[in-house]
Simulated scan of single mutants.
Amino acid sequence: MKQAELFLQADAALRSVVDRITPQQLGLAAPAEWSQKPNPTLRDVLASHARDEAWVPDVLAGRTIEDAGTTYDGDLLGDDPVASYDRLNDRATAAITADLDPEKVVHLSYGDFPLAEYLQHVSVYRAFQAWSIARLIEVPFRLGDTLVDNLWEEIVPQIDGWREMGVFPPEVAVPADAGRETQLLGKAGYWQE
């Protein structure tokens, strides 16, 4: 399934950035739109991603928020946030590599969707968060050609609809000779010089 491949690529991209976060950077202020918490820090954002990773096996199994109850409440990061995130990421990766039915309906906090659509949603989120976090912590990062091509195929044809739903900010102009990754970031409203 194409969306499972996209998920694995985007999830690996996010992990590659998370693994470069230092303990000192966890206290950095993060943009307000990255979190529902007031005055979020990078640790708050990482905690949200950890919870998102933790949910993947349950979502794939068809569980609902009610089924999980308080399973994912509290601090999932502990004393070693990056290692804790990595453990949850390993579980999510293992769940995604199982035999999956793209039409299976999964239950999300914002409604029920076919599995393929859920994977598309979370892949887009992970990929652009990887890029954004890398910018915040000032580490070199590229989405990579394969991930860019897959994101392009998944989102560009319907980007105006995504934008209307508030998923993406307005498109940003990029240099005329920009490569495909920069073009994608511009279309999604993320590119910055």
Rank of each mutant, 00 (worst) to 15 (best):
A4L: 07
F7H: 10
L8A: 10
A10G: 05
V17N: 05
R20V: 02
R20H: 12
Q25C: 07
L28W: 10
A29W: 01
P31L: 03
A32C: 00
E33C: 02
S35N: 06
Q36M: 10
D44Q: 06
R51C: 04
A54E: 04
W55Y: 07
A61K: 10
A61M: 06
A61N: 10
G62K: 09
G62I: 10
R63L: 14
R63Y: 11
R63A: 13
G69P: 01
G69N: 03
G69S: 05
G74K: 04
L76R: 05
D79S: 15
D80H: 13
V82W: 08
V82R: 06
R87C: 04
L88M: 12
D90R: 15
A92I: 04
A92E: 04
T93R: 14
T97P: 00
T97M: 11
L100F: 08
K104F: 07
V105K: 12
V106I: 10
V106F: 04
H107K: 11
L115C: 10
E117W: 01
L119A: 05
Q120A: 12
H121K: 14
R126G: 00
A130F: 02
I133G: 02
A134K: 08
V139W: 08
F141E: 09
D145T: 15
T146M: 03
L147M: 08
V148T: 12
N150M: 15
I155V: 15
E164L: 13
E164C: 01
E171I: 02
A173H: 08
P175N: 03
A178S: 14
L185I: 08
L185G: 03
A188S: 14
Q192M: 11
